[in-house]
């Protein structure tokens, strides 16, 4: 599931770079750089969470993680 988030972020980066090129404005590329930085932070925390969850309950399926539901 997390890797699908990465794929979507890549799509957003691509459209940012494309519009940056189309409009002749560098701010789109800078925004894409920020998206990459935020994605790196998200990966760090997200995979830390996955490791912590995996330690308590093996498996990567999101559907099994019903313990956090209330």
């Amino acid at each position: 599931m997390l890797i699908s988030v990465e794929v979507m972020l890549n799509a957003v980066n691509l459209s940012l770079a494309g519009f940056s090129r189309h409009l002749g404005d560098l701010r789109g590329q800078v925004l894409a750089l920020f998206v990459i930085a935020v994605a790196a932070a998200e990966v760090g925390v997200g995979l830390g969470l996955v490791i912590a969850l995996n330690r308590n309950k093996p498996g990567a399926a999101v559907a099994d993680l019903t313990k956090l539901k209330w």
Binding site: A40, A41, E42, G44, V45, G48, L49, I51, A52
Partner: peptide, 10 residues
Amino acid sequence: AAIIGAVVLA
């Protein structure tokens, strides 16, 4: 914050 959070979580 992400570095510290990842260390704390893992």
